[in-house]
């Protein structure tokens, strides 16, 4: 299910706390990073590791906005439009991404390359407007600079 490295990491993580389930949120995030999304198999595997039922794990997943039970694009473009970004053109960047990628909020391209999401504050307020592609920050954006960012990923 998981790479040997991640499996080992999980074995260590559950020992970092007095209760195994305490490692659940980071484990879900790391599993998603490796597998792409939290499939039924991933959920069942992790539930076993932390001694919970699948349902209990799903109940936690639905709370956290970074956790997904369906596949996302290879590059998940997350555009912040919260107040600091709003004042510096975050909405324009989001509109631009919609047009450029041909998809809307929480949608994925048919090719599976890009997905798009309008997100809440990323903690990049002094460098607004900001976008996160997977975990990489891109800051001080304009529609033109956003094009370059997208091209850079498309070429990878």
């Amino acid at each position: 299910m998981f790479s040997e490295q991640l499996s080992k990491k999980f074995d260590k993580m559950v020992t970092n706390y007095p209760t195994k389930r305490s490692a659940l949120v980071p484990m879900l995030l790391f599993a998603q990073d490796e597998v792409g999304h939290l499939s039924d198999e991933v959920i069942a595997n992790i539930a076993k590791r932390v001694e919970l039922t699948d349902l209990e794990v799903r109940n936690v997943i639905s709370y956290y906005s970074l956790l997904h039970t369906k596949p996302m694009g290879k590059y998940h473009v997350q555009v912040c439009t919260n107040i600091s970004c709003l004042l510096r053109g975050g909405e324009e960047v989001f509109e631009h991404c919609k047009q450029k990628l041909g998809i809307g909020h929480k949608q994925t391209q048919a090719s599976g390359l890009f997905s798009l999401e309008e997100v809440e504050c990323l903690g990049a307020c002094s460098w607004a407007p900001a976008v996160q592609v997977n975990y990489d920050f891109h800051e001080n954006l304009t529609p033109e600079r956003m094009d370059k960012v997208l091209e850079q990923y498309a070429k990878k």
């Binding site: 919260n82 504050c121 903690g123 990049a124 307020c125």
Partner: peptide, 11 residues
């Protein structure tokens, strides 16, 4: 868990 909009210092 810094996430108050407008705040980017703990980062």
């Amino acid at each position: 868990d810094e996430s108050e909009p407008g705040t980017c210092k703990d980062r």
